[in-house]
Simulated assay, not measured.
Amino acid sequence: MEKSTVYFTDMHVTLRENLQQKLTRLIKKSGMDQIDFQRKYAAIKMHFGEPGNLAFLRPNFAKTVADIVKEHGGKPFLTDCNTLYVGGRKNALDHLGSAALNGFSYLSTGCQILIGDGLKGTDEVLVPVENGTYVKEAKIGHAIMDADIFISLNHFKGHEMTGFGGAIKNIGMGCGSRAGKMEMHSSGKPHVHTEKCVGCGTCRKQCAHDAITLTGGKASIDHNRCVGCGRCIGACPTDAVEAPIDEANDILNCKMAEYTWAVLHGRPHFHISLVVDVSPFCDCHAENDIPIVPDVGMFASFDPVALDVACADAVNRQPAVAGSLLEKHGHQHHDHFTDVSPDTNWKSAIDHAVSLGIGRKEYELVTI
């Protein structure tokens, strides 16, 4: 069976080569510089880190990727979409402020930042998902779909719902608009937290389906009319409109894979994962626990599926860091991610991505 190639280098440096230079060498050895970037827009999808979390990738790594794109005549920009939950990245203004707080700027990265789904998370493109089992039209951030080339720059870490967050998570979940994220996370439709509602009517004005009414100074949503677009969530000034986070984890993973297909299909793409500061939970938390394993290294591939599998295999070969949640939970499942979050199953995303033709599980690891 044909294998995908995944390139790897560890985190050791010399007096002649620092980590950014080593990442440059890895990327060029992997072949990213063979993409035709000339006069093309290149979206570099990454996570800017929730304020309070310190496990996110430093902006220096983003600059390394952006510099290679510019070296070959491309126009790179960093991007992410707004979050579904309330936090420091729920709209474009807060999102850009959080990115700046965490050190992301034109000076530190060499390129601009565009929030993919706009001010309130409603600027989206409906992308048909061929052979989608769970998603017929993925709701992807407009700026991301406008790009000619897509590059994912991933911080590989654990995740409390998907097992781990790597390339598929960064692409599928990260590129979904607010409505897209709701579709992946939820099997239902939004509802109003009445104690937070001030009866301003902003949500009702945004609803194109007359599903929202005001009664007694409080909004309510008629789920028979609601189509689950999520615009009311972004519009509410008090965060009173909420989406139920109730989708089964396996289905969440499969939806995430289908969103990944929508983002990647029909254009050049390349993927980079840094297996460092492997926190047990997502960078969307406003805090991060100590890493569960020692730093492993940097990986790159044209195949995001093989990349995720190679990173997971590398993490599972590592010993638990003393005092980490992994050590405390023990090794009951022969899989570090399942040991930390037993209700997850990261392999469901991998298997579904393979069935969609996104990539292969089998890989050849080339160490540089």
Rank of each mutant, 00 (worst) to 15 (best):
A100G: 12
T9R: 08
H285I: 06
H159N: 05
H329L: 10
C311H: 06
K205S: 09
R39W: 14
N91L: 04
G216A: 02
V241Y: 02
V293A: 03
P128L: 00
S98L: 13
L93N: 10
L107D: 09
K169T: 11
Q20Y: 15
C207S: 02
F302D: 08
H285N: 15
K181A: 05
M145G: 06
L126G: 09
D222V: 02
Q318N: 07
K139M: 11
F48R: 08
I35C: 12
G88E: 10
Q332S: 14
V263N: 04
S341R: 09
A219M: 00
G87M: 14
G88A: 06
T24V: 14
H159T: 07
A320P: 01
G116L: 04
P51K: 15
K139C: 07
V293T: 04
E247S: 13
E124Q: 10
D246M: 13
D343P: 07
N53D: 04
K181R: 06
K28I: 13
P244G: 03
F299S: 00
A306R: 09
R317W: 12
D283P: 06
K136D: 00
G118L: 03
L114M: 14
I272H: 00
G216L: 02
N170V: 04
N224I: 03
H159R: 08
D210N: 14
I358F: 02
L214S: 03
H155V: 01
S324C: 03
S186D: 01
M173I: 15
V366S: 11
S348G: 08
G73I: 08
A43D: 02
E130R: 11
D335W: 09
S152Y: 00
T122E: 10
G228E: 00
A92Q: 03
K157M: 08
V263R: 04
Q38R: 14
G216Y: 01
G163S: 06
F37T: 06
G158Q: 07
C226F: 01
D148P: 00
Y259K: 06
C111G: 06
L15E: 14
L57E: 08
A100I: 08
V65T: 10
A66R: 08
A100T: 11
P294K: 02
R178M: 08
A286S: 15
G297V: 11
R317L: 15
G88V: 08
E364V: 11
T344P: 09
Q332D: 09
G97C: 13
K45F: 06
D339F: 05
G103D: 02
G323R: 00
A62V: 13
E287P: 00
N288T: 10
S177N: 05
L23S: 12
M173Q: 12
Q206A: 15
